[in-house]
């Protein structure tokens, strides 16, 4: 975890600095005279976060190398990529084809991405899940969600 702490702490320290120096001044106006600035709490919190992140980096730099690799395994990165792609496809389908197709893409896409190849499951599961959602909202709860 030592290396992960140094990298994540460094990233968060830079993020905090960027927020204090650039983002907060650009995104939050100074309040009217006589009132407390709307920037006060975001700047304080970001300052605290930056200080803590620097502490995290410094503390871990002083520790001996534990030889541990990345806390995220290769298979987890692949899963992130696969599920991210499924969501991206679903969003595109939502815009160009409609919500039903987006829902279908999420179920079928993630089934395929996770290694399911049985045709019966690939056909029945999307139908069952989408029908289940329809029954739950439109029949049981009596409301339209779209």
């Amino acid at each position: 975890m030592r290396r992960a702490n140094i990298y994540s702490g460094g990233f968060l320290a830079l993020l905090g600095l960027a927020m204090i120096l650039f983002v907060i001044p650009a995104q939050i106006e100074e309040g009217p005279a006589g009132m407390m600035s709307p920037r006060l709490v975001p700047q304080m919190i970001m300052g605290l976060m930056t200080a803590l992140s620097v502490m995290l980096v410094v503390r871990n730099l002083m520790l001996p190398d534990d030889g541990e690799g990345s806390p995220v395994s290769r298979s987890e990165y692949i899963a992130l990529l696969k599920i991210g792609s499924v969501f991206a496809l679903a969003l595109v389908l939502f815009y160009f084809a409609g919500p039903l197709w987006a829902g279908l893409a999420i179920v079928l896409g993630s089934l395929l991405a996770l290694g399911e190849r049985r045709p019966l499951v690939l056909v029945l599961m999307p139908i069952a899940l989408l029908a289940g959602v329809w029954v739950l909202f439109y029949r049981v709860l009596g409301t339209a969600i779209l």
Partner: peptide, 9 residues
């Protein structure tokens, strides 16, 4: 793998 798609939906 059969649970994840339903949860994501």
């Amino acid at each position: 793998r059969l649970i994840i798609p339903g949860v994501l939906l």
